[in-house]
């Protein structure tokens, strides 16, 4: 059966950990075999990392005065977990080039990490919202 969990947080950096830890806990529930504190479960770590990246991205691009909310929606299915991160910032593309590691870049790893740890990543613009959807099979 499909289960949907939604969490809305202010788009502020201090909530990144909460978002990432929630993602880890949801992933642990879906995974079923591992404890959320299990540091070696690839599935749990992937969601913690991907949501941390996506939420940071939303929070960093948020308009400073208003802090529009960021909504995380987890859709748990039998063999797959999908999380969507929705914010109302300016549109952005997810087609960033892979950073050239030899030149010691300080940024640009975020999307690379998301793509590597998730099975499918899509971005779409829905009205005035950015929606990144990330899913991974068990």
């Amino acid at each position: 059966m499909k289960k949907v969990i939604t969490l809305t947080l202010p788009g502020e950096l201090i909530f990144t950990r909460l978002a990432a830890q929630t993602a880890a806990s949801v992933a642990a529930l879906v995974c079923g075999e591992c404890h959320p504190k299990d540091n070696n479960c690839e599935f749990i770590n992937a969601f913690e990392l991907a949501v941390s990246e996506a939420f940071t991205n939303s929070a960093l691009h948020a308009c400073q005065d208003e802090l529009p909310p960021v909504t995380l929606t987890f859709i748990a299915e039998r063999h797959q977990l999908t999380v969507t991160v929705r914010d109302t910032n300016e549109p952005f593309g997810i087609e960033t080039p892979q950073p050239d590691i030899e030149s010691y870049p300080e940024g640009g790893y975020g999307l690379l990490i998301i793509r590597k740890v998730m099975d499918t990543v899509t971005y779409r613009r829905d009205g005035d919202a950015n929606i990144i959807s990330m899913s991974k099979k068990l």
Binding site: R17, A20, T56, Y104, P105, E106, I113
Partner: peptide
């Protein structure tokens, strides 16, 4: 836990 921001600051 470390994410891309943390990694970026170590690399920097």
């Amino acid at each position: 836990f470390i994410d891309s921001s943390g990694l970026g600051s170590i690399v920097g």
